[in-house]
Amino acid sequence: MSGIEVLEAGLMTTVQDQGRPGFAHLGVPRAGALDRPAAQLANRLVGNPADAAVLETLLGGLRVRCTSGTWVAVCGAAAAIDVDGIARGHSRPEWVPPGAVLRIGAAYAGARTYLALAGGVGVEPVLGSRSTDTLAWVGPPRVAAGDHLSLGERLGEPRALETPRPPASGPLRVHPGPRPEHFAPDALERLCATTWSVQGDSDRIGLRLSGPPVARTDRGELASEGMILGAVQVPPDGQPVVFLADHPPTGGYPVVGVVEADDLWQCAQLRPGEPVRFTPASPSSRSS
């Protein structure tokens, strides 16, 4: 059976597909690739369905040996890529001969790189998904050096020419939150007027920002309530957290705004210390 042997897993590599929505009421985060357009493009390039499982690696540093000849595509954060020392391209299908070693170097722009392999990573699904959730650790364990991962049946041909332009980056469009009475009246405007800085402890659970505190009113905490992807939660210290794929399904801090779903891929690619801006979403803007 075709598969890969992981030689180096870098800082943090996980298996991700489109996640496992529908279990929030049981306390299960949805998980799934943080930069969905990048994961989908990588899958499309190697002829996989969009929901095939890929490897998501933080800041690069991934090395795998392909036990049989395999089409691969690397998308997302930019990094040097080579096969047995010969440089290969980003965002295009590449052939890895049997026994050859594919290396993704340190990411030099962006944070999360996606490796799609023809057939998709074939770990056992848990609750309908192969994604690892890093909050409750539902799904496969994180990928470690020495792991052997099988690949699924190849379903399509690589598509070298279908490389749609990646979505353009820009300020994160933000909708008003559900509880404005928990914030100063101008809290959303102030959120949008500030240049925030990405904190080093940002992860798959949330993008943590630092800047002038978002002013809360003294209504205290809420009883825990359901939280959604993209919610901008404000803890007592006023430093906002944008909830990403592994966010807790419920929470007790008020939400000042909700980031447009189509903009969340950018949160996957921000590095500590990089600036972030928000802009008011037009009420009619719809995510696909």
């Binding site: 929505p21 529908g22 929030a24 009421h25 009883a223 825990s224 309530e225 359901g226 939280m227 959604i228 399904p249 419920t250």
Partner: peptide, 25 residues
Amino acid sequence: LASWARTAVEAVEVVPAACTVLLDG
């Protein structure tokens, strides 16, 4: 409300809590 909403409302997530129900997706 959550039990009712599971069949009556088209939503991906129905999340009851202490005094709220979230309908998401």
